[in-house]
């Protein structure tokens, strides 16, 4: 398969992943939706804004206050993922339109971010594999999702570093995209309605925004 074919393959996988994810989220509605009846005490909107805003700060939750390293690793991991997708999008541009790599300053920042992503991904994988408690709540999907994602970040980093490996990145992206709706990475979309519902629940009750 030529480069153009691979790019088309990535685009198709992306569309498939997006459609599958959306269908899964929409399908949750078949479990029944009922508008809340009790009169609100606080504000659903304020709760939602808190859940996606200050409630995401590391200081907002005891779990992140007491685990700053894990929090930082998670942030680094996700920065790496977003960057790798940025590199992918850049690589997806028609090669005829110019360089398939971003300009040097952007490339350097992106390299740092992919390095952070790899450190985050690998550290979290090791933490999961070595910690008996974390192992006890893990399923194979947890490991595979991490491996695929970390490999994708690594391919993006290598592409930035070596300027080649475009095909490997495209193949890695296809695998990852196809896997996204199948396992835990679906939280990339599920996170938003799930957190929305939590914010609405505690916002209506006046619990969110939290008072410390």
């Amino acid at each position: 398969m030529g480069d153009a074919g691979l790019r088309l393959g990535v685009a198709i996988c992306a569309v498939l992943a997006a459609v599958a994810l959306l269908l899964q989220v929409v399908r949750t509605r078949s479990f029944g939706t009922r508008p809340p009846m009790a009169e609100a005490q606080g504000s659903a909107l304020r709760g939602i804004l808190y859940a996606f805003g200050p409630g995401m700060a590391p200081s907002a939750k005891e779990s992140t206050r007491t685990h700053p390293v894990v929090y930082a690793l998670g942030v680094g991991y996700h920065l790496g993922i977003f960057t790798a997708f940025g590199v992918l999008v850049w690589s997806m541009r028609d090669a005829a339109a110019g360089s398939a790599l971003p300009p040097a300053p952007v490339r350097q920042v992106a390299l740092v971010l992919t390095a952070l992503g790899m450190i985050g991904g690998i550290s979290l994988l090791v933490r999961r594999a070595r910690g008996p408690l974390l192992r006890a709540i893990s399923i194979p999907d947890d490991y595979l999702a991490n491996l695929l994602t970390t490999a994708f970040i690594a391919l993006a980093g290598l592409r930035l570093l070596a300027g080649s490996l475009e095909r490997a990145l495209l193949v890695g992206a296809m695998l990852l995209l196809l896997y996204i709706p199948l396992g835990k990475i679906r939280h990339c979309l599920f996170f938003f309605p799930a957190r929305w519902n939590l914010g609405r629940h505690y916002g209506r009750r006046g619990t969110f925004p939290l008072r410390h």
Partner: peptide, 19 residues
């Protein structure tokens, strides 16, 4: 319910809730 079905599929097994 729909919200429950969302919540059930959103846990990433990070374990940060343990303590």
């Amino acid at each position: 319910g729909a919200a429950g079905a969302l919540w059930l599929q959103t846990c990433v097994h990070c374990g940060l809730c343990a303590e």
